[in-house]
Nucleic acid binder design. Structure first.
Length: 230
DNA sequence: CTCTAGATCCACT
DNA sequence: GTGGATCTAGAGG
């Protein structure tokens, strides 16, 4: 592992057995490990359960896509969005509840070489601070995609080594309480006022806030059969 | 740094 | 059919 001060102790499942908005700030500074890559989390967002959080994927109840969030805590909910990106969450609360924490950004502590290759476009890697700066980028850096949906991120049993292909959340190095900031969540169109985005103040790997921008379909796709406007 | 537009799949209504 | 829990490249300051 990279940082000498980092505790390699895995977090127990009970860590996740709380509401997502309590787990979320506590995840800052923790380290998610998957294969050769380790990322220290610097920005997360909490999403609530059915009927209580209009921005959550579980708002309208259980579906095939969000089923993992209704499973036991500590597992990864990985979903596909915008036709090309994956984002990773950690499931909270006991089985049946349906809430999670979106992992929005972090600092790559280990496996930087692997992360650079995964994040390279046209052979050029981005600056190191951008390797996991944003939820889809973080998923790429960690090698998380569709097949990791449902993967258990809690290590039970053997303390030293992780089984091949497993994931784990380590104790890491939580920030001083004063450095934890909270604000509205990014990129959502409802419940914009809920301050369930948490980040480490001043950390360069925290993603820039982006307000939701409704995407318009291409003119060609929407104007079929329409008269010319002028 | 900001702004804009395009890419591209799929879950759900 | 609609609208994303997004990112990148390119143009402009």
């Amino acid at each position: 592992m990279g940082g000498a001060e980092l505790s390699p102790a895995p977090l127990p499942r009970s860590f996740f057995d709380r509401p997502s908005h309590e787990v979320a700030p506590d995840l800052l500074g923790r380290v998610l490990v998957h294969g050769p890559v380790a990322v220290r989390l610097t920005e997360v967002e909490a999403y609530g359960g059915p009927g209580e959080d209009p921005a959550a994927h579980t708002y309208r109840g259980r579906t095939p896509r969000n089923a993992v969030m209704f499973g036991p805590p500590g597992h990864l909910y990985v979903y596909f969005t915008y036709g090309m990106h994956f984002c990773a969450n950690l499931v909270c609360l006991p089985e049946g509840s349906g809430s999670a924490v979106l992992l929005r950004a972090g600092e790559v502590l280990d496996g930087v070489d692997v992360a650079r290759v995964r994040r390279s476009s046209r052979g050029k890697p981005p600056p190191d601070r951008d390797l996991a700066r944003g939820p889809a980028r973080l998923a790429v850096a960690l090698g998380l995609a569709r097949e990791h949906n449902g993967l258990d991120a809690v290590l039970e049993g053997s303390p030293a080594g992780r089984p091949h292909g497993s994931a784990a959340v380590l104790e890491g190095r939580p920030p001083a309480p004063g450095l934890v900031k909270a604000g509205p969540r990014t990129g959502i169109s409802t419940a914009k006022e809920v301050p369930w985005r948490f980040w480490i103040d001043g950390d360069p790997t925290v993603s820039p806030y982006r307000a939701h921008v409704p995407r318009r379909r291409s003119a060609a796709a929407t104007s079929v059969g329409e008269a010319p406007s002028s």
